[in-house]
Structures are given as structure tokens and as C-alpha cells.
Design a protein around this nucleic acid. Structure first.
Lengths: 155, 155
DNA sequence: ATGAGTGTGTTATATTGTAACGATAATATT
DNA sequence: AATATTATCGTTACAATATAACACACTCAT
């Protein structure tokens, strides 16, 4: 268990609560299936893979197949409730689904813990440089790999 | 054809030349197969997929199978001769294989042209932020998606 | 109630990537 | 030069990730 200590029960319930809230606001339907997938993703702060979600759903009696999970993920991504980690083919919950935002991810290659950060200036610097050469930015993927404090201490 | 105008024949030959050079320096073996894969990647400045490389190799008479391509790519990545584009599962040639370096990629979602850039401050800002929270950085993936000038003009 | 849109189940398949083993070629050691 | 060692390559099989296409059920606005 990661020692990024916090009350994780509360963490999950806050995440689900704010998901309900933003979906209600937008008229988006957070169905039981979608909510369950989001809950599974929030079971940890680690990168979660689609087929792991699939296995978990399968264990719960249902007959889960890939499209079930990928469709739920598509919805959650569209609502900003989760982020996709491109360099891992994995997913992680987002605490700030209220509005789209630029962000960066710190990914621990030992324990797979993922931390969402917002480093001031990064988005702007990239945007400015792109603009200077006539490139119109629509999205950014910024993923930093390394070792988190807990794993470093353990070693 | 992208209108990022330049003499592409020369561009390829420079890339292959510097590949030969750095491999010779390091005692790394740029075999005919590896060189051919690198050459195929440099046929354009666009994101190239592993299975497209596989098809090209197949057309040349040989019996190319996935491990052939992936092993060549592993070598080229290890030597810094190509970069992997995580958000595309694709590969692009690198002009600066002499030493490892942090870089960012501008990826046109219309024409798939990829431009390697080095925005001053981005790596440092990310590193600084990571360090402040005790995170040790080993690598960064920075990929900016959008529309390149040529595609914007065309539209 | 009905028709349009949305969500889910299901089958099948596409795409991306590796493990493992043997054959061959390059390099190093004697 | 002959042999040992390692690196590279070919091949088979398969694992992991993701999507297309169609059927059916549900919602809800008319």
C-alpha cells in the first residue's frame, strides 16, 4: 500500500460525489456501470489498465467484455473524470473534473502511483513555442516517469 | 506531401550518416536490417507505425515478422536514433542521436507530421516541481497535439 | 404509442507487442 | 586457425490492447 497517506475512503467518496455533481450539471448520465468503473479506478491512485477493470467486473458476476469497459472509459474521459496515461495504456482518476485543464502526471515506475500536478508555466511555454511556429495546440500529453518518495525511501 | 519544405534526400542521407557515425563511435552494430528500418522511418517526418514498417519490409521480398521490426526499433530507440510517440504508438527519427536529450514533440493530427522541439524551461520546470515533492525523474514524455501550419493554411 | 437517440450485450476481429527456441553470423579467446 | 562466446535474426506461437458492427432495451419528447 502506498504511503501517500490519506483517508482513502473519503477520497473515493469525494471523487464519486463530484462525479455525480458534474454529470448532473451537464445532463450526462453517470449510469451504474459507468459509476462502478469509476469507483474501480479510484480504488487506488495507481495506473489502472482496461483489462484489469474488465477482470474486476467479471468477478462481480456480470459478463463483462472489452467494449463494456472501453465505452465506460470513453464516457469518463469525455467528462474529464479520468485521464488516460498514454505511456502506460492505463487510466487514473481526476480530482478536478469541473472544467478541462492542462495537467502533468508524475508516474512512479516502481509502485505505479500516479500524481496529477499543474506546473506553472509548462503549458504556456509549450503553447507559446508552438504558436511561434504556427502550430495550433489542441491538447498536451505530459508524463514524467521516475521514482516516488515512498519508493525511494524504501530503497 | 508535407510542405515543410527541405531537400529530403539530403535529410535522409544526413540522418543515416550520423547514425553510422554514432554507432561506430559506440561500437554499436547498425546492421543492414536496422539501417533499413531507420531509412524507412526517415522516408517521411511523419509518425511511422511498427506494422507499417513490417509491411514495407514484407514488400521487399523478405519474410518479415513482428519481432524483426520490434527488435530493430528497440535498438534504434536505445541508440537514440528514433523516438517513440507514446500517444500514437508510433516512431519518428531523431536528428540529434549524439547524446540523450530532453525534447518535446509537436504532432499534427491532420497530416501526422512530427516536429521535435526543445522548449527552454519545460524540462527544468517539471524537474524542479518533481524534486520539490521528492520525486526522482528518470524520463519525460511531452507530446503536443494540434494542427501544423500547412494543414491550417490548407483549411 | 411512436420514433429518435442513448446505453448495453454480444460476437467477431483488428491492432500492438512479446516469449521462447533454434539457427546463423560476428567477435573474442585460445 | 580453431574454438568458445555472444549478438543477431528467423520463426512459431501467443499476449495485451482496442474497435467494428449489429441486436436489443430503455428514455423521453412529441
Amino acid at each position: 500500500m502506498a504511503s501517500h497517506a490519506h483517508d482513502h475512503e473519503q477520497c473515493i467518496s469525494e471523487a464519486l460525489g463530484s462525479a455525480e455533481r458534474v454529470c448532473a450539471q451537464r445532463g450526462a448520465r453517470l449510469t451504474p456501470l459507468r459509476k462502478r468503473v469509476l469507483e474501480l479506478i479510484w480504488e487506488s491512485h495507481e495506473a489502472m489498465k482496461a483489462y484489469d477493470l474488465l477482470d474486476r467486473l467479471g468477478q462481480e458476476g456480470g459478463s463483462a467484455k472489452p467494449p463494456t469497459v472501453y465505452r465506460a472509459l470513453d464516457f469518463l474521459l469525455a467528462q474529464g473524470l479520468v485521464h488516460r496515461i498514454e505511456s502506460e495504456n492505463a487510466y487514473v482518476g481526476c480530482r478536478h473534473p469541473e472544467r478541462t485543464h492542462e495537467f502533468q502526471l508524475l508516474i512512479c515506475d516502481d509502485c505505479r502511483h500516479v500524481e496529477e500536478i499543474a506546473v506553472s508555466g509548462v503549458t504556456e511555454a509549450l503553447g507559446k513555442h508552438a504558436k511561434k511556429q504556427g502550430f495550433t495546440v489542441t491538447s498536451q500529453t505530459v508524463e514524467v516517469h521516475g521514482q516516488c518518495p515512498s519508493c525511494r525511501d524504501r530503497a
